[in-house]
């Protein structure tokens, strides 16, 4: 794409007579027209191939290898071990609990995020303009908090000694607290020691940070639905729930599909928040697959092979779960 200045002034020698009147794109510095998109794609293709696709292949290879410290230093060749890494993780109690933690956490969090987010989206739609802007600014600031800071904030809220949550739970009347939780005194409750309660905190953290996106997207979708439909429903005496089920939900289906899939992708690989809540890869029972993979590969002694095998399992799960959606999108793409 050189020599553009002469072309711009209409003085191109390579394209005589196309100073005026052509709807066809001019030639780009002597490049044939068919080549232009490919040239534009070169940097992007190189980045995607070199930084995403090739490492993906490498990871699959590493999952069949034993990478010792000497290999990492570059003084030895990796050793092939066949399916050994997979056999090792499948036999491992930690892997099974990590898999369970990952799947259950994703199911619970995606459901809660979508339900709460949709409810808030519908609410925003019914609020006055000023009120809804006020609430949107509020929920946006929760969405914007970086994952690591989300972790520090909720770890602080759930702090055993000086945390606000334990203070608030102590405010509950003793009979109510005993009835619901089976205990009345919450002073010094160490939420982050036990893997079960860590996940309670993690679900809260992630739902808190991700429902705003769902809410605002649902609101954007609702604004696109013609109000006559709702008027007709009202005239027919439809209940709010029925209106939601028969008008809102079907029309917002594409939005919900995207939101579900994005939430699944995000919640399956939550790492930063868990890392902070657990204070690094310490409590092995509370690992999820991403943290387990990281811990295997980078905590002494580094076991890159098993780490990669765990990452492969996580990737395959995600690709399978999202395969249907990807197919839908590809079909739409062909139509466009």
């Amino acid at each position: 794409m050189t020599d553009t200045s002469t072309l711009a002034r209409g003085g191109a020698t390579s394209a005589p007579g196309r100073r005026r009147g052509s709807r066809r794109p001019p030639r780009a510095g002597g490049m044939p027209a068919w080549a232009v998109p490919y040239v534009l794609l070169v940097p992007g293709m190189l980045v995607i191939a070199g930084l995403l696709l090739y490492p993906m292949v490498q990871m699959a290879i590493i999952s069949f290898q034993d990478i010792s410290l000497r290999v990492i230093r570059g003084v030895a060749e990796p050793k092939w071990v066949g399916l050994e890494n997979y056999r090792r993780i499948l036999d491992n109690e930690i892997f099974r609990s990590a898999l369970r933690n990952t799947v259950v956490f994703a199911l619970v969090t995606v459901t809660l995020t979508l339900v709460l987010g949709t409810a808030v989206g519908v609410l925003l739609h019914r609020l006055s303009k000023r009120m809804s802007t006020f609430v949107i600014i509020g929920i946006m600031s929760a969405w914007a908090v970086p994952p690591v800071a989300q972790g520090t904030i909720w770890r602080w809220l759930f702090d055993a000694e000086a945390g606000v949550i334990n203070w608030a739970l102590n405010l509950l009347p003793d009979w109510l607290s005993s009835l619901v939780f089976g205990r009345a005194d919450w002073s010094g409750q160490p939420w982050l020691n036990d893997s079960w309660s860590v996940y309670v905190v993690l679900v809260l953290t992630v739902v808190w940070a991700s429902f705003p996106f769902v809410a605002v997207s649902v609101l954007a979708g609702l604004k696109g639905i013609p109000s006559e439909l709702y008027e007709a429903a009202r005239v027919d005496g439809s209940t709010p729930w029925r209106t939601f089920r028969t008008i809102t939900f079907p029309l917002l289906k594409p939005v919900f599909a995207v939101l579900t899939i994005l939430s699944i992708i995000w919640d399956f690989k939550v790492l930063s928040q868990l890392y902070v809540l657990l204070n690094g890869p310490t409590n092995r029972e509370a690992f999820n697959l991403s943290l387990y993979s990281y811990a295997e590969a980078f905590k002494a002694p580094p076991k890159m092979g098993t780490g990669a095998a765990i990452a492969i399992v996580l990737t395959i799960i995600l690709l399978v779960v999202t395969a249907f959606y990807t197919r839908q999108m590809v079909k739409q793409e062909d139509l466009a």
Partner: peptide, 23 residues
């Protein structure tokens, strides 16, 4: 290319830490 873009977004980047570190 578009399909690649889409599929690549499904890969958890956390899973690529190991090969990217070695590279």
């Amino acid at each position: 290319f578009l399909v690649t873009l889409l599929v690549v977004q499904m890969i958890p980047c956390e899973a690529l830490v190991i090969p990217l570190f070695l590279n």
